[in-house]
């Protein structure tokens, strides 16, 4: 009989000792941790894309809780992350519709002339360092894919010498805008239906000399647009998406076809 009781007693003693020690210790030495930060961090997608302006999700989570920063800065997360953050911090989430990045250049291999044969390594920044790039037009996309490498969502691809953004993959983090050495990528509202694919402000004669698809500032689109949405400022046409009804008359009218339906 005692052969059964004694081991049990030993284990009871051991368990008592362990239980007491542990519970006392965890109570006496407990440390206050703000659990809300960890919850906020859970809600964020964790892509560390920096679109919210903070160096990654951890910092943004801490900022949302401690510095009362707006809850809807997380562009990839979109509305539903904003809601979750709203619940955690009790602040209302404003609706956020992320813009789309667009490459404002249509000068592909056929239309754009080359100033020289580029023999350096495949990088826009590298080519831009040599006389502004191998394209005669100084405002066009060089097509060496710096934006393609930088895009976290692989939404950009270079087709026939010009970078093109795939709108449904683009989450609007706009990293490509800062990476492009020629500044030819710009945020455009997702709702926009027509877009002018050119950034060359030079007068018609000079533009036509360097690229057959460049906007020559002939103001034809400005005249034909029924809604008055198109304005040509110093040689370059621009469409205001809020006024644009999407009728497409500017696109047909354009002699160089540099206005494109999205």
């Amino acid at each position: 009989m005692n052969e059964f009781v004694i081991p049990i007693l030993i284990f009871v003693a051991l368990a008592l000792f362990a239980g007491l020690l542990l519970s006392l210790a965890s109570k006496l030495f407990a440390v206050k941790v703000d659990t809300r930060i960890t919850d906020a961090r859970e809600a964020l997608p964790g892509a560390n894309c920096g679109a919210c302006g903070y160096a990654g999700c951890d910092e943004y989570a801490a900022a949302v809780i401690q510095d009362e920063v707006s809850v809807s800065l997380c562009v990839p997360g979109g509305a539903q992350v904003a809601e979750k953050l709203g619940e955690i911090t009790g602040r209302k989430a404003e609706a956020v519709i992320p813009p789309v990045a667009r490459v404002l250049c249509g000068g592909d291999c056929e239309s754009a002339k080359k100033a020289y044969q580029y023999h350096g390594f495949q990088s826009c920044a590298a080519a831009a360092g040599l006389y502004g790039g191998d394209k005669s037009c100084h405002y066009g996309c060089l097509g060496f894919g710096d934006c393609v490498k930088a895009c976290p969502q692989n939404a950009i691809s270079v087709e026939n010498g010009v970078a093109v953004v795939d709108p449904n993959r683009c989450i609007g983090c706009l990293i490509c805008v800062s990476v492009c050495p020629k500044g030819v990528i710009a945020p455009v509202e997702r709702t926009a239906s027509y877009l002018v694919l050119c950034k060359n402000p030079q007068r018609g004669k000079e533009t036509r000399a360097v690229c057959s698809a460049g906007c020559i500032g002939c103001k034809k689109c400005e005249r034909t647009c029924p809604a008055g949405a198109v304005k040509v400022t110093d040689g370059l046409a621009a469409i205001d998406p809020t006024l644009c009804t999407g009728c497409g008359s500017c696109a047909e009218g354009c002699p160089v076809h540099c206005i494109v339906k999205l």
Partner: peptide
């Protein structure tokens, strides 16, 4: 790191966990 100075509630915080642990250990043994 400042300690969380909430008072120790003897019954709920200490005795109950220890008792549960003892019961579990005894059962297993």
């Amino acid at each position: 790191v400042e300690g969380d100075q909430t008072p120790i509630r003897p019954l709920r915080d200490v005795l109950r966990p220890t008792a549960v642990l003892c019961v579990v250990v005894v059962l297993i043994a």
